[in-house]
Amino acid sequence: MKNFFRILSLIILFFGFQLSSNAAEKVEFLKTHWSFKGVFGKFDRGALQRGYQVYTEVCSSCHSMKYLSYRNLAEKGGPEFTEAQAKAIAASFEVKDGPNADGEMFLRPGKLSDKFVMPYENVKAAQAANGGAYPPDMSVLVKARGGGVDYIYSLLQGYEDPPAGFTLEEGVYYNKYMYGKKIKMANQLSDGLVEYADGTNATVEQMSKDVTTFLMWSAEPHLESRHRMGFKAIIYLIILTTLVYFSMKRIWSRIETEV
């Protein structure tokens, strides 16, 4: 049995090493403390609400969030705006609905059940407005990029002047964390760009962290209940395993063999 676990742990170690070496990127990302990491990880409610504010005031003019509905903003485990707040947020957007009895499409204030309003009618329109580059939908963006939250957080702060001799085409910007160091999105954040409702000082770093937290939640809206359930499930399994282990010892003690 000892032998078995020795070999098993070696194999697991090997795969762990392989996974981590696969995930390792050439550039070191900026590090920050994420409250949602770890066994008991939870979102920072304030960061989510501020992050939503950054998204709406800055990102949403180009980036859609097609899998989110306004009702999500009031759901447990998310930014947890009150239902009245979420309704007010929804109502501040104009949603295209219809056709009505006359066969006409019409605009009406948003409701909780509406999906987030898209900045562009379609992908082509988005490309046309952005020099041919489609600003990706941000609903699952964090999970769609190697490096996840650390990558997004770094990218938002990674704008620099290009090193000497580095040629940039028209409408392309230098970002040291971007693949190939070239990005079609201009630097969007500057200190004091938004005025946070809760009075937090809106530095670039703060906004990057808040909006990245918001994006993590939008990609994994059930993260908190997943962590809670995982803890319970694993504790339950450990207790059961222990009980079964002792039953096994008892049963096998009837014959003279080492288990």
Binding site: A23, V39, K143, R226, H227, G230, A233, I234, I251, W252
Partner: peptide, 25 residues
Amino acid sequence: IKDGFALLMFMIVFAFFVFYTPNIL
């Protein structure tokens, strides 16, 4: 009982992946 014990050990590893690093693989 022995298979059951081993299965439970396996399920703990399984649960760790599902609940804490579901996208790493």
